[in-house]
Design a protein around this nucleic acid. Structure first.
Lengths: 115, 115
DNA sequence: ACGCAATACCTAGAACTACATGGTATAGAG
DNA sequence: CTCTATACCATGTAGTTCTAGGTATTGCGT
């Protein structure tokens, strides 16, 4: 399948925020989770993910700290913030609105329930 | 509401193709139709639309010709091609896949039926 | 003990793109 | 005759994206 560049860019932020809303995580694990969730449709390299994580941190959507107890490799653990949770809700509303707009043209096979 | 830049970019191609799949049209009218369909969520300027139309033409998704009979203003009329119709179907599948991926994280309020 | 693959993180800069701005021109309303 | 709406288009810069490369640790196979 292989999802288009623009669509992947649009998914990036909500995807990472939603993963971190489930539980704290770190770069490498997020990458594998995305591949797993999208069944390989989304192909991200780590070189694309880390700058995004840094941007989300700068925006205050997520918070980072180096793994405290040095059991195994050093990791940078990320946690979603309150602002991040709110932002996720905003992005979700926008996705629903976008889907509704396209859905009106595409017919009923793409539908939005709730929200 | 005001949809995010990345999401607008992701919508752009399918939106234009879908509008032209309904009927032939031209730049200015497409712009108004997008505003109408999205209830103002998508704010496009003509400076953004025309380059997109030229790109889609270059890719062979749409075909253009100047309005034949010069009744009123000159217009550049666009028509979707067979390749464009196929591309629209591809983009729709991708949108569904993306929505499914996000839907798995967001719960059931964002759902995909059919396709 | 050694090499290879997997884990884990990060950055520089080339390559690309978007979009604000400004430009042209016609039609119709007041 | 002026103003707004219609209708199209190009350019330069300001920005972003991702490819390519870099570092280092762990564990497995032999």
């Amino acid at each position: 399948m292989n999802i288009d560049k623009d669509l992947v860019a649009a998914m990036a932020t909500p995807l990472v925020l939603a993963i971190l809303a489930e539980d704290t995580s770190y770069g490498y694990a997020i990458l594998k989770r995305v591949r797993e969730l999208s069944a390989g449709d989304v192909e991200w390299t780590d070189g694309m993910l880390y700058p995004l994580l840094h941007r989300l941190e700068r925006l205050g959507y997520i918070r980072a700290e180096w793994s405290a107890s040095p059991e195994g490799r050093r990791r940078r653990n990320y946690e979603i913030t309150q602002v991040g949770v709110e932002q996720l809700a905003v992005q979700r509303k926008q996705w629903v609105a976008a889907t509704r707009t396209l859905g009106g043209l595409w017919g009923s096979s793409l539908s939005v329930a709730g929200a």
